[in-house]
Amino acid sequence: MASVQLDGVRKVYDNGQVAVHGASFEIADGELMVLVGPSGCGKSTLLRMIAGLEEISGGTLKIGERVVNDVAPKDRDIAMVFQSYALYPHMTVAENLAFGLKLRKHDKATIDARIKAAAETLGLTAMLDKLPKAMSGGQRQRVALGRALVREPSVFLLDEPLSNLDAKLRHSVRTEIARLHRQLGTTMIYVTHDQVEAMTLGQRIVVLKDGQIQQIDTPMALYDRPANLFVAGFLGSPAMNVLRGIAQPEGLLLERGALLPWAGPPSLPAGVLGQPLVVGVRPEDLHLAQADEPGAFQATLDNVEPVGNEIFLHLQAHGLDLIARIPPRSLPAPGAAVWLRLDSARLHYFDPATEARIEPAIVPGPATA
Rank of each mutant, 00 (worst) to 15 (best):
180 L>W: 01
126 A>D: 11
74 K>C: 06
57 S>N: 15
88 Y>W: 10
255 E>V: 08
47 L>F: 03
358 I>C: 00
171 H>P: 00
101 L>T: 02
325 R>C: 04
94 A>D: 06
119 A>H: 10
304 V>L: 11
51 A>E: 05
198 A>G: 10
296 A>S: 13
56 I>Y: 11
253 L>Y: 03
318 H>W: 09
302 D>M: 10
176 E>S: 03
147 R>C: 07
46 L>Y: 07
132 P>K: 11
86 A>V: 11
287 H>K: 13
6 L>Q: 14
74 K>E: 11
267 S>C: 13
202 G>E: 02
138 G>T: 04
348 H>W: 05
39 S>F: 06
297 F>P: 03
99 F>M: 08
196 V>K: 04
337 A>P: 00
176 E>Y: 02
350 F>E: 00
11 K>F: 07
53 L>R: 14
143 V>A: 09
366 P>A: 13
216 I>W: 02
59 G>R: 14
265 P>S: 14
245 G>T: 05
308 G>R: 08
3 S>V: 08
76 R>Y: 01
175 T>L: 12
34 V>L: 07
38 P>S: 14
349 Y>D: 01
60 T>K: 15
164 N>I: 01
21 H>Q: 14
53 L>N: 12
90 H>D: 04
45 T>L: 07
301 L>E: 03
234 F>C: 01
2 A>M: 11
21 H>R: 15
320 L>W: 03
364 P>N: 14
272 V>Y: 11
58 G>N: 12
325 R>T: 05
319 G>N: 04
229 L>Q: 07
348 H>Q: 09
229 L>K: 08
129 D>C: 08
186 T>A: 14
334 P>S: 08
203 Q>M: 07
222 L>E: 01
344 S>P: 00
35 L>S: 09
299 A>N: 05
286 L>N: 08
170 R>Y: 01
178 A>N: 02
4 V>K: 10
219 P>E: 05
277 L>A: 12
62 K>S: 13
351 D>A: 14
303 N>Y: 15
78 I>H: 01
285 D>F: 15
319 G>R: 08
27 I>L: 13
84 S>I: 01
101 L>W: 03
361 A>Y: 06
117 A>I: 04
272 V>H: 12
186 T>G: 03
289 A>W: 08
276 P>I: 10
328 P>E: 12
165 L>S: 05
5 Q>E: 15
174 R>G: 00
161 P>Q: 12
221 A>F: 00
13 Y>N: 09
267 S>Y: 05
45 T>I: 07
85 Y>K: 02
217 D>W: 06
41 C>A: 13
294 P>Q: 14
271 G>V: 12
8 G>I: 09
159 D>Q: 13
198 A>C: 11
94 A>G: 06
311 I>D: 00
92 T>H: 09
14 D>L: 15
111 I>C: 07
110 T>S: 09
34 V>M: 06
165 L>C: 07
72 A>L: 13
5 Q>W: 07
364 P>S: 15
242 V>Y: 08
234 F>H: 01
199 M>I: 02
51 A>Y: 03
63 I>D: 02
347 L>M: 14
359 E>Q: 00
218 T>R: 14
97 L>K: 10
200 T>Y: 00
190 Y>T: 03
22 G>F: 05
201 L>I: 04
340 L>N: 06
273 L>D: 12
6 L>W: 12
253 L>D: 02
193 H>Q: 15
9 V>F: 05
62 K>C: 13
130 K>H: 13
43 K>T: 00
188 M>A: 13
134 A>P: 00
190 Y>S: 04
269 P>F: 13
354 T>L: 07
